[in-house]
């Protein structure tokens, strides 16, 4: 019962958004709760055009997928060594990774702009890719290493006796065992990259390289916001995230029993 109520509360905003995305602006102004009298599919066409989604979608997909793959890969590798190995300075490295999670993004805009300008990569997708990876590595590493730390210690020992190398252990034992956590960080990374706004705003000027969140901002002006078309745009922008989630959801709960090879 509680679960059903909770799910209702959680799904309501989604329904509300989709319903209103089919109304006219006047209908929405006069009554934001009613069903649309006529289903205005043209809002979607309008949103597609105003937010330049045709172009921005492909940019966003490219950046988000690339950034997600790289962050998870680099993060998993770093987590493996941080959680399964002993070395001096380990604590310091972990602490270092904490810093990236602690500073508000708006404080980073001017320094990041100047950095990218000096590196000469303003207005390229690299200017988004690197900060995205850098600022999502901390959460990725923290989640993954806490997960890997909980594996029994005898895994490597038996693997070493079987003659496995360091990378072999990582690739064939640790990664498969980490599947639920990998699914989690992949989902979170993709959402973060997909929705990232502030860096994209200041680091990209060229229309050919802009991402979806920048397009979606076009609906809000100085004195008014075109809510119905905005909701149509938001609904479309939500789809890739939902697809990624549904695709990875099964790995979230299919853990040890299915994936792990125990030595």
């Amino acid at each position: 019962m509680v679960l059903i109520l909770y799910s209702l509360i959680n799904t309501y905003p989604l329904f509300w958004m989709v319903l209103n995305s089919f109304k006219t602006a006047k209908e929405f102004s006069l009554n934001p709760f009613s069903l649309p009298t006529v289903w205005h599919w043209e809002n979607y066409k309008e949103a597609w055009r105003v937010a330049k989604l045709g172009l921005y979608f492909s940019n966003s997909i490219r950046v988000s997928v690339l950034a997600t793959v790289l962050t998870v890969l680099l993060g998993a590798l770093a987590s493996y060594f941080l959680s399964r190995f002993e070395f001096r300075g380990k604590k310091w490295v972990s602490a270092l990774f904490l810093f990236g999670m602690l500073i508000p993004v708006h404080a980073m805009l001017v320094p990041m702009f100047i950095l990218m300008q000096k590196l000469g990569i303003l207005n390229t997708l690299w200017a988004l890719l690197f900060p995205y990876i850098a600022f999502n590595l901390p959460i990725t590493i923290f989640i993954l290493s806490s997960f890997m730390e909980a594996f029994p210690r005898d895994i490597e020992e038996s693997a070493v006796m079987d003659g496995c190398g360091v990378l072999r252990i990582f690739w064939s034992i640790i990664l498969p065992m980490s599947r639920p956590a990998l699914a989690t960080v992949t989902i979170l990374n993709f959402i973060n990259h997909w929705n990232e706004f502030a860096f994209a705003l200041v680091l990209i000027n060229r229309s050919e390289l802009k991402t979806v969140p920048l397009g979606l901002a076009n609906f809000a002006g100085e004195y008014s916001t075109n809510y119905v078309v905005q909701m149509a745009g938001l609904t479309m922008a939500l789809l890739p995230v939902v697809i990624i989630y549904l695709f990875l959801e099964k790995y979230l709960v299919k853990g040890m029993t299915a994936g792990a090879v125990k030595g």
Partner: peptide, 14 residues
């Protein structure tokens, strides 16, 4: 868009 324009101009100026 207006709000973002102001942030962006200020960053570019810096």
């Amino acid at each position: 868009p207006h709000d973002q324009y102001k942030i962006k101009i200020k960053t570019q100026a810096a």
